[in-house]
Amino acid sequence: MAKARKANPDGYVHTRDAKEYQRLRDQARIWQGATAGVLAAVGLGPGMSCLDVRSGPGAVMRLMADRVGPQGLVTGIEIDPVLGAEALRDLRTQSGADFQQIAADLFTLETPPGAPFDLTFCRLLLMHMRDPVIILEKMAAWTKSGGVVVAQEFDFGAIAVEPTCPVMGEFNRVFEGVFRGHGRNMRAGRQLPAQFEAAGLGTPDGTDAAVHYLPLSHMANMLIGVYDSLYAAGAEFGLADPVRASEFRKDMAEAGADGRYYCLTPVLIAAWKRMT
């Protein structure tokens, strides 16, 4: 089991390793349709330039490329240079657009190459930020007049398993304990309009919300992956130990195989604003 350690200095409370990055790829597949719909709604089209802020494994960059085509520019910012380089290699192998990757800390980066962009986008970033307004201010500054700023964030208020599933109590205990212990925002999605206002963007021009209700058999491995990625931070708070973790994995796998349970996912909420 991973040694307990402090949260990553960039605000990410999960571990940063190959297992976590694969979990992010799996998670991206679940929300691919929701993000593609938002990109269509804001009018991303051929030849445009776009920026994915904290781009991770590159899943959103691929969706952007599908819309901007070979004449478009798709740029990602990722603090982990190894992950960013791997994503860039994969994207360029698939082709579809001019891909660029920037290895940088958002809080020290002033102006990324290629700015200003037609679209500046982040997904599941602001919930990890102690001051998301600063990030939105930067995104607005990096967006050209007539371009669009988009944020897409989870709201964890709805997540549940039906019928009542005892093992979810252990998941929620560690998940909520780590997020609250590190001051992370579990309601980031519903707070996007207020954060846009605070960043000087004004009232969003549009919003969107997506949620899934899936058999727990489809979500059990994802929930185990989230728990494992939070284990180090949980152990630091005294919330997690090897015995509890082992029991959780066994019980969640059994619940997933049971066939009775369904999982209501977090709500993925998007808001966007066109710059003037």
Rank of each mutant, 00 (worst) to 15 (best):
T143H: 10
A271W: 00
A188T: 11
G202T: 05
D205T: 04
A115N: 05
G47L: 04
K273P: 09
T93R: 14
A97D: 02
G47V: 04
V174R: 14
R23Q: 14
A210P: 01
G11D: 02
G256Q: 03
A28L: 09
T265N: 08
F248S: 07
T276N: 14
Q32Y: 10
E254N: 12
V150N: 04
A271D: 07
L91C: 10
V42R: 05
R190N: 08
G43A: 03
D118R: 13
R130G: 01
T207M: 15
L119N: 08
E170F: 07
G183Y: 09
A4Q: 14
R92H: 03
D26T: 09
L24R: 04
T15Q: 01
I224S: 11
G259H: 00
R67P: 04
L39F: 10
Q22M: 15
M168Q: 05
A18R: 02
A210E: 00
R190Y: 02
D251L: 11
A85T: 12
D80Q: 09
Y262L: 06
A18I: 00
L83H: 05
D52P: 06
A104P: 05
A97L: 02
I135T: 14
P81V: 01
A210H: 06
K6F: 08
P242S: 01
L268T: 02
M252R: 14
A87R: 00
V133R: 00
E20Q: 14
G206E: 08
E236M: 07
G181A: 02
G72H: 05
F117S: 00
A235C: 12
M48V: 01
L39W: 08
F99M: 01
W272T: 05
M275S: 08
F117I: 04
T276W: 10
L214M: 15
Q22C: 13
M129L: 14
F196E: 06
T108F: 08
R16L: 13
Q100G: 11
V82M: 00
R260Y: 11
R29I: 15
L136W: 03
W142H: 01
G37C: 02
I79K: 09
G238T: 05
L73C: 13
R173C: 13
Q94N: 09
R92Q: 15
N221G: 12
H14Y: 11
L83A: 07
V68G: 12
N172V: 14
T207V: 09
A220K: 12
Q27D: 06
P215C: 08
P113M: 10
R123Q: 12
G45S: 14
L268D: 07
R54D: 07
D118Q: 12
V53Q: 04
T265S: 15
F175Q: 02
Q195Y: 06
A160M: 05
E137W: 00
M61C: 14
I224M: 08
H182V: 10
G33S: 12
P9Q: 06
M275K: 15
I77S: 03
A235Q: 10
G234W: 04
E78C: 01
I79S: 14
S229G: 13
R29C: 12
R190E: 09
P266G: 00
R187A: 03
S229C: 11
I159Y: 06
F171H: 07
H182C: 14
D90Q: 08
P204E: 12
G181Y: 00
P9T: 08
V167Q: 06
R180L: 10
H212Y: 13
G259R: 06
A104Y: 12
G206C: 10
